[in-house]
Design a protein around this nucleic acid. Structure first.
Length: 296
DNA sequence: CTCCAGGGAGCCT
DNA sequence: AGGCTCCATGGA
């Protein structure tokens, strides 16, 4: 087990690790102490977070001056990719509006970055997200990993892999229901089979124009336009998607009442025209801000 | 007890 | 295309 640190001075722009990992973009990171999402505490807490990075167990924590890591091999390059510690993301953050609800969210959580999570875990996580609270999505993703994904251990660190498409496709609907997935169980089952069989996968989406990729992603069972937007934004590198969930729809009604239309597509285009060059970044800031502050 | 959660599928017009 | 209903489960 090695340890090391990326100095803040080596990270371009601001970083808020807690906001990045606890804003509902990813459900594969867990605090060492097991807790997550206690919005009562201020952002920037120096918690250790663990997950698998390129298949290797890694723990990271942010302090005032560094991003510390513990792992068997130096994970710096992979962490830079996974957490978007890049000049590009820094520029996207800086380009966020300073006024309005976006400005408030930026002031509160500057340094929140859009993660680059692996495709399949993200796809399944957001299929589960339908009519579910953030905390519960997280606990179900952990439960799926413990039951169907093998444990990977290095030193004192044990993290369970998220199941492969094949492993999840092999699970029965009854098993998934017993785990608590409810009516989403057959969706996960069918989508896992689609990916395992190569019927539709990430490479069919990346490289496509945003709206084309979103439409294709809805071919997965249990994936509508909102879930498709989350997958494109948090795992496939698109920055256009503005996932229109209940929080964001309310916020649009309140803060952008002149956005026209009632269909998902119309509202999506309308709000994207108002949020600058990287609308998904603004959306993620606002979502986290509203969920923590309580009201739109 | 009722209500609701980062929605989507199936069916209807 | 657009609108409606049902869908499991757990926590407030």
């Amino acid at each position: 087990m090695r340890s090391g640190a990326i100095p803040q001075s080596a990270i371009p722009g601001p970083l808020d690790l807690q906001a990045t990992l606890e804003s509902g973009q990813t459900f594969r990171w867990t605090r060492r102490d097991g807790s997550m999402y206690d919005s009562a505490e201020p952002s920037g807490g120096e918690h250790w977070y663990r997950t698998l990075v390129d298949g290797q167990p890694v723990e990271v924590r942010q302090t005032d001056s560094t991003l510390e890591w513990r792992a068997a091999a130096d994970p710096t390059a992979a962490l830079i990719e996974r957490l978007a510690l890049t000049d590009d993301m820094t520029a996207m953050i800086e380009a966020l509006a300073d006024e309005g609800v976006v400005g408030n969210a930026k002031a509160a959580y500057e340094g929140l970055r859009i993660v680059n999570e692996p495709f399949f875990p993200t796809l399944v996580s957001f299929i589960l997200s339908a009519q579910m609270r953030i905390e519960r999505i997280h606990s179900l993703v952990q439960a799926l990993s413990r039951k169907y994904g093998a444990a990977v251990r290095t030193g004192d660190l044990t993290v369970h892999r998220f199941p492969t498409p094949e492993e999840l496709a092999a699970a029965t609907e009854t098993e998934l229901r017993d785990l608590g997935l409810g009516y989403r169980a057959p969706y996960v089952e069918a989508t896992a089979e689609m990916v395992a069989d190569g019927e539709l996968t990430a490479s069919d989406l990346t490289g496509q124009p945003y709206e084309t990729a979103r439409r294709r992603a809805t071919e997965f069972v249990g994936v509508g336009e909102k879930v498709a937007d989350c997958v494109l934004l948090f795992s496939l590198g698109y920055t256009e998607p503005v996932p229109l969930d209940t929080w964001i729809r309310t916020a649009i009604d309140t803060h952008y009442p002149d956005v026209e239309g009632s269909s998902y597509d119309e509202i999506s285009r309308g709000i994207r025209d108002r949020l600058g060059p990287d609308p998904g970044v603004a959306q993620t800031y606002v979502f986290h801000y509203l969920r923590n502050e309580g009201s739109p």
